[in-house]
Simulated scan of single mutants.
Amino acid sequence: MKPASPYGALLDANPARRSEVAVLGASTHYWEYGPADADTVLVLVHGFRGDHHGLEAVCAHIRGIRIISPDLPAFGSSEPLEGYVHDIDGYARWLEAFVEQLGLSGRAYILGHSFGSIVVSAALARGLNTPKLILVNPIAAPALAGPNGMLSRITLWFYQAARALPLAIGSSMLSNWLVVRVMSLAMVKTKDPELRRWVHQQHHAHFSSYADRDSLLEAFEASIGSDVSMYAEQITVPTLLIGARNDPISPVPAQERVHTLFADSQLAIFDDVGHLIHYERPREAAELIVRFLGAGTVAEPRS
């Protein structure tokens, strides 16, 4: 039986509106939450192999802000980029063009989670104009040089092998139930059995919604070859970093170091959670976000 979302009632009270727009020659699908005429607009960029569903629990808690949550190119419902590699530069160019296409340049606040934290940081370093930046579970150090460097290399070899094999075999490897479950078990930290089941279900439902093996490998190589520290010193806008003490991808010392590289940043570190703040602690994240933006409210829990 499919586990019910613990945030379903809140999301039902704040339903999404789906749209699409052509960006750099390809269709980007995006979802909007909150009032369409709100003065405050927040654009979200999700993590690697996910889609907009990953940040829905955060959206469910926020009221009074127009939130725009696209699927990254080649993930979810969005088409792959046309004429661009799916690397950090390609995704940064896409984000600039997406914000511009919606007429929000210089007005929209930007939030990136995990891989999205690298994308949005690179976009700002390239010149994307935003009043404030929010990074949730920021990738604060290179994956290949960190404590999980060997695991990152093994995963890279796995992706490379899956691309080299015949399509049916390679695709089956990448979307294999056991592979997805192992990843999910490594990330989830909550002891709540219902929440754990729901997080695993979310990963199984949305972790394999990618366009093709080539774009997936390009994005994975980008995710392990770049990090926020490469761009932080070029970012001058006020920045909120929301990290976690048990994050297996970004250790606390790396989070604290990247915090010092920004010209103007705040660092909040949650205890008893890892790389899934957006699933396990969305209400607390929403509270930090609305306080930092000085706009919106956090909805009361609904049964």
Results as ranks from 00 to 15, higher is better:
L178W: 15
S175W: 00
H46N: 14
E79D: 15
N246V: 04
A141F: 13
I134F: 11
L267Q: 03
A122M: 04
S117K: 01
H61A: 07
R291Y: 00
L135N: 01
D89C: 01
L128C: 09
F262P: 08
I118R: 02
V136H: 00
A140H: 09
P73K: 14
P35G: 13
Q202G: 11
I134H: 09
L144H: 02
G103F: 04
T297L: 02
P253T: 05
S208G: 04
S152E: 12
K191G: 11
I269F: 03
I134Y: 07
F48E: 04
T28C: 05
W157Q: 12
S77N: 12
L195Y: 08
T236P: 00
T155N: 13
G83Q: 08
L195H: 09
L10P: 00
Y231W: 13
A143R: 15
N246T: 10
S226V: 00
I62A: 02
Y7R: 06
I235S: 06
Y30I: 02
V85C: 06
V43E: 09
S226Q: 08
D12W: 05
R281I: 01
G54P: 00
A186D: 10
D214L: 13
R66M: 12
H206G: 03
H86S: 10
A286K: 00
E96P: 00
I169E: 07
L55F: 06
P166C: 04
R283M: 07
R107T: 14
A286C: 05
D87K: 02
H52V: 10
I110Y: 01
Q101V: 09
G83S: 07
L111M: 15
S105D: 15
K2P: 14
F292R: 11
K189E: 10
D214K: 14
R196W: 06
V45N: 15
P80K: 05
L293I: 05
P3Y: 08
Q201D: 15
M1R: 14
T28L: 01
Y30A: 00
H86P: 08
G47C: 02
Y109M: 12
V41G: 00
R126L: 08
A141T: 15
M173G: 03
Y210Q: 03
P301N: 05
L174G: 01
R213K: 14
A211I: 08
G90D: 02
Y279S: 13
M150H: 08
V180E: 06
A161C: 13
A286P: 07
A92L: 03
A74N: 11
R63Q: 12
G83A: 08
A244H: 08
F220A: 12
A186Q: 14
V228W: 11
